[in-house]
């Protein structure tokens, strides 16, 4: 019985499956913002970013995915750089939440798990049709609760927390050739045959208010552009991920922190 060697990260798989399964062919991209939300204008805002969940690999002809270390490493670095440069919403400062130890690590893991459940719920029951809750068709009321203030403490203070997840499986040459061959064969067979897609590029991002814990904004896209393996592509990806992100009106009276 023992020796079932690789058990993939179940939580990730669940999120990813939900992200993909919940997206009907006609609506790949959706964003929502908490109604009536506006960034405060009395001070510059600081956004804390959770370590982006980034996966990059290749998709073989038969559809199996192979993780690629270099692509993943580059993608994470590129996305982090692009997020900092993008200054989402006009944030004065973007900081990454450092790895934690002990109790702080447990708090971090707890909120990651809760955000996972909230994100999953928004994807499956709010943003996309099919399994939507009728009372949630409008509005955008989700929260991690005011306990999130603890997260800000562990990262030297912050006003908002940003979660970013991307998954990129680049169709290999073999996959692209199979796609072409399948199309030819299907045409030859009078239109009867499989449709082969090449590559898989999905992602989502969410913003949390670190005082109330409320989910302010979320955006999900099952067919994203921008090649995260290079800096320019990652910048385009981040722009897409941050689509419809709320923008802070000009900060009155308060100068940015020194």
């Amino acid at each position: 019985m023992w020796g079932l060697r690789d058990m993939s990260s179940i939580r990730w798989a669940v999120l990813c499956a939900a992200a993909l399964a919940a997206v009907p062919a006609l609506a790949q991209e959706k964003a929502a913002t908490k109604p009536g939300f506006a960034f405060p204008t009395d001070h510059a805002i600081r956004i804390l970013v959770f370590r982006p969940e980034v996966r990059a690999g290749s998709q073989s002809a038969g559809g199996a995915t192979t993780p690629n270390a270099e692509w993943t490493r580059n993608a994470r670095t590129n996305i982090m750089t692009a997020l900092t440069a993008a200054r989402p919403g006009g944030a004065a400062e973007v900081a990454f939440i450092p790895d934690a130890e002990g109790d702080a690590a447990a708090v971090l893991a707890d909120y990651r798990a809760l955000f996972g459940a909230v994100a999953n719920t928004v994807l499956q029951h709010r943003l996309f049709k099919g399994d939507r809750l009728p009372t949630k068709k409008t509005g955008f009321e989700y929260s991690l609760g005011p306990g999130v203030a603890k997260l800000a403490e562990t990262a030297g203070g912050g006003d908002y927390a940003l979660f970013v997840t991307t998954n990129d499986q680049y169709g290999s040459t073999g996959r692209k050739l199979l796609q072409l061959a399948a199309a030819l064969a299907t045409t030859a067979a009078g239109g009867i045959g499989p449709t082969v897609t090449s590559g898989q590029h999905s992602g989502y991002a969410g913003l949390i208010d670190l005082k109330t814990g409320d989910l302010i904004w979320m955006n999900a896209d099952a067919r994203m552009g921008g090649d995260v393996r290079d800096a320019d592509g990652a910048a385009r990806r981040v722009t897409q991920l941050l689509e419809d992100f709320p923008v802070q009106a000009s900060v009155a009276a308060a100068a940015p922190k020194p």
Binding site: R5, G63, A185
Partner: peptide
């Protein structure tokens, strides 16, 4: 070795399937 075997098996399976349609 397991990952490579699985990948190779699904590749061959997909190609022969498409070829069989053709």
């Amino acid at each position: 070795a397991d990952m490579r075997r699985r990948r190779s098996a699904t590749n061959w399976g997909a190609w022969l399937t498409v070829a069989s349609i053709a």
